[in-house]
Design a binder for these strands. Sequence first.
DNA 1: ATAGATTACGAACGATCGTTTGCTAAATGG
DNA 2: CCATTTAGCAAACGATCGTTCGTAATCTAT
Lengths: 201, 201
Amino acid sequence: MSPRKSAAAALETRDAIVARAVAVASTDGLEGLTIGRLAGDLSMSKAGVIGHFGSKERLQLAALEEAVGIFTRTVWEPVASRPAGRERLLAICDAWVAHLESGVFPGGCFLAAAAAEFDGREGPVRDGVVAALGRWRAVIERDVRAAVAAGELPADSDPAQVWFEWNAFAMGLNQALQLHGDASAPDRARRAMRRAIGVPG
Amino acid sequence: MSPRKSAAAALETRDAIVARAVAVASTDGLEGLTIGRLAGDLSMSKAGVIGHFGSKERLQLAALEEAVGIFTRTVWEPVASRPAGRERLLAICDAWVAHLESGVFPGGCFLAAAAAEFDGREGPVRDGVVAALGRWRAVIERDVRAAVAAGELPADSDPAQVWFEWNAFAMGLNQALQLHGDASAPDRARRAMRRAIGVPG
DNA sequence: ATAGATTACGAACGATCGTTTGCTAAATGG
DNA sequence: CCATTTAGCAAACGATCGTTCGTAATCTAT
């Protein structure tokens, strides 16, 4: 009843599964992902879905990887070519807020949801979340240090504190948008993030 | 094989179920709650568990209500008798951070987890989360207004902005503790919350 | 003392979970 | 051109899901 696809088309199938998994997981959580539901959404058999990954956990990891890729492409890559420092930090701030505001993920920030969901468990998925957050944290802290070294930010700026506050504001913005539909939240987040690095709003 | 209990003892049974449900949901999420697992943990039958609530959703609502009660008792009630204003805001800040630090919920802040889990859905559970957060928000904003009126905080303090930032810091602290075991996070959160209301750390 | 309400049980319901097994059919490699 | 690999399906696996039903046992109220 179903003809086989070429190797290239099979990759497209895999991508379609991952894309759908990201969308579903952003609203229902990575644990709420279901092989059967994905199969139904994509008009495939359950075996056809799971065959690309081997297990549900590897499917979750693929969805996580794709979500991290989306975040990287929409927030980091547009500003990556700028020199490290205050300018790029402000660009990151705007891109980050715009990303959360844009509704790329129907259920809100994928990483925030995954972090909240897996923060009390163990395993590869949790490890992947921790690693992704760690990489992003390193990016932010590096730019804070560069900005301080260049005299663009107060000399007593604490990179770890900036990361703590920025990450918190991103989570707060995500909650305000998803839970309350608060249209004033993006402005609040931008102002708070600027103030956190000593830049007047 | 199992004798019936008195009305008073039945309430104890119900309380035991809710207490266990709160603990499980704080790590595995409200959707991860399972009648069968609860029954096994409490050496009861599934019917005996669900009989007290009627449905899983009402069990989730009972767990949410209990978690909100715990938060209220440990964070709000100890400071409720103080007069509204800057003093009480600082006391709330300390109690809030201490609460998250204390590990009352094995899986971290129950409300934060429930908010992240249900922010993309609809129904009574989501409504309950929104309502609980709204009540807490009203408490914070009222005290900010009182402190401004008393001249204890800068006249241009924005109550909604203070709530946004405090709530964000609480989420950030919860993530830092649960996901990274970051022992420096409580201090960071306290400092950030104080700075958010213009109080030097 | 007796009748009714209530707690909790065991058992079963259909549905769905993740996964495995054979199979077909098409694309690929020699 | 033929052998091998591979994508995907249909079907079934045991397990578990939330829920319902009937029943036994005990408390409560008359």
